[in-house]
Design a binder for these strands. Structure first.
Lengths: 154, 154
DNA sequence: TACTGATAGTCAGCATACTGAACAATATCC
DNA sequence: GGATATTGTTCAGTATGCTGACTATCAGTA
């Protein structure tokens, strides 16, 4: 009888569960209230100023219906802004605010610490191997979810 | 500038996302409507008849507040039953129904197929390595989430 | 230009997950 | 035995994620 714990799907769920808990704990201890999802979105907005929501969703592999709420919360916290685009009146252009930039800067040590903690059971080489294998599995399965990773358009 | 895609937390999220999508697609194609979470719960109830909700949650590392809704849905679908325990009147004893047993049996090929598909980018050895490393990282981080894995009591 | 198809964003509805609180029942300790 | 702590379950509230539908807009074409 195959144990749940031998199924890659179950292991994926558990690892993610721990990763989120560690992230929230580290970031919370540092005095911030930001989820992993919100952090990734904010960092990506900062790196690609003026991008629209669909592009943002593609860059971090979120569903486009999920990104709406995530941006709502970033805007509500004063970390990002959503403006109507003049080139395409359907689209919204996203910008990070000064407050958002400050938050990102101050939160970085906690985020890096979280990444270390969630791999604390592994040696440096093992961590590297795990990341490489996850990368490879994800690349092969990219198109299988509704929210695949998409490169930015030129 | 560190890319999101180099963070273990982000990779964890993506792998899980793909794993869930593949599971739902395979199981759905086979004609069943069962989530990965519901499947794991049902399989664990079958393997441990009469267990209570907290024990079930511990065996599959779910939060105890989450398990309530999962069981609600299994009961509503007629796959499991929830009975008051006579030994401890706070607790509910869980049993799989005949319908649940039938469903588990018929769904197994789809579940196994899903596990293969989510690793389709990896060789057999790479798959084995990934599972081993995930196991190790999860074991070290077990206590860091609100819903750690717990062995069954004797 | 009118039609057709595609695209950007949102929304309603459902299913995990978690926090924190409540309630009832049990266990423990003095 | 009675106060206290702990445990099993549920609930309200919030945040992802998804499906499917809808509106507004844009792009291409007959």
């Amino acid at each position: 009888m195959k144990d749940n714990n031998d199924m890659p799907g179950h292991l994926a769920r558990r690892f993610q569960q721990i990763a989120v808990a560690v992230f929230l704990a580290e970031v919370g201890d540092a005095g911030f209230d930001l989820t992993p999802v919100q952090y990734a979105a904010l960092a990506t907005i900062k790196a690609n100023p003026g991008l629209d929501q669909v592009t943002l969703a593609g860059l971090i592999a979120y569903d486009r219906t999920t990104i709406t709420g995530v941006i709502d919360r970033l805007v509500q916290k004063g970390l990002a802004e959503r403006r109507a685009s003049r080139r395409d009146r359907r689209a919204r252009e996203l910008e990070i605010t000064d407050e958002g930039r400050r938050t990102l800067r101050k939160i970085t040590p906690a985020v890096e610490s979280a990444q270390r903690i969630m791999l604390r059971g592994l040696s440096a080489k093992e961590s590297e191997d795990l990341m490489r294998l996850l990368h490879k599995a994800i690349a092969a399965g990219n198109e299988l979810s509704r929210a695949p990773l998409r490169e930015a358009q030129a």
